[in-house]
């Protein structure tokens, strides 16, 4: 059974249908990518999974459990963490408080210190800036914090919405390197990106165009597809 199963998902904002009949499944241990240009509907899909926007039709199952009608906090408590577009860290809370407030004692047996240690090991920079207000961090540090925050409850599935957006190539590389580590530690990843370079990390995924699935498959078949060549690599 897949960890996450999305079938025939459609989402609309008023009359505008942003996502149309999208289906995909994320297996345990995968790095699944949702690739697509601006406005393709990537963010909308993640928001629908998290319960932040209602689906017009379709079903979303996590671990065999129907997420239909779940509040966002229930989705999070079911082990699905979301690193949102634009980071959305708590600007008026310190780095340490951003992390500790995201730890839910009832979700895991590990103590908060274990979660903090794990995050600080991934991003030592956050440990150095523990007392700094979230809003005063640099863009890259905010991204690290948003990822760290999402890891505080040892999620089964980590969803990231364009984590490399606005980062220097060096920092973007660092983020992807950390994603590889997170995956190696046993967390399944659902990664939204515009940039096809993330395919290196991927196991499989889909390409979205205008809210519909244009292509689905394993990493290699996506990378070698006409679609990616034309749209992303400029060949």
């Amino acid at each position: 059974m897949s960890l996450l199963e999305v079938s025939d998902l459609s989402v609309a904002y008023g009359d505008l249908v942003a996502v149309r009949q999208v289906s995909f499944a994320v297996d345990e241990g995968a790095v699944f990518v949702l690739l697509g240009a601006n406005g393709a509907g990537k963010t909308t899909i993640l928001r629908a999974i998290s319960g932040l926007v209602p689906a017009r039709s379709g079903r979303i199952f996590a671990d065999g459990r129907d997420l239909q009608g779940s509040a966002p906090n229930q989705v999070a408590r079911a082990g699905i963490a979301h690193v949102p577009e634009g980071r959305q860290i708590f600007a008026n809370l310190s780095v340490g408080d951003n992390l500790s407030v995201s730890y839910l004692a009832e979700r895991t047996e590990a103590p908060m210190t274990a979660a903090l240690d794990a995050v600080f090991q991934l991003f030592p920079r956050l440990a150095e800036r523990r007392r700094q207000l979230g809003g005063t961090l640099s863009g890259g540090e905010q991204q690290m914090l948003a990822i760290g925050r999402a890891l505080m409850n040892f999620p089964k599935l980590l969803m990231l919405d364009e984590p490399s957006l606005g980062l220097s190539p060096v920092l973007a590389d660092l983020v992807f390197e950390r994603l590889a580590t997170i995956r190696a530690l046993g967390t399944t990843i659902l990664l939204v990106e515009q940039n096809a370079t993330c395919l290196e990390l991927a196991t499989d995924g889909i390409i979205l165009a205008n809210g519909e699935v244009a292509l689905a498959g394993g990493r290699d078949s996506l990378r070698d597809s006409e679609f990616v060549r034309r749209a992303y690599l400029g060949i």
Partner: peptide
Amino acid sequence: TQWGKAVRAVADNIEAAEIVGLRS
């Protein structure tokens, strides 16, 4: 307190608070 931090997190960004699992 953990409760106080949660209150401040909800005040700061209610959507972000929800997606980290806080019952806003």
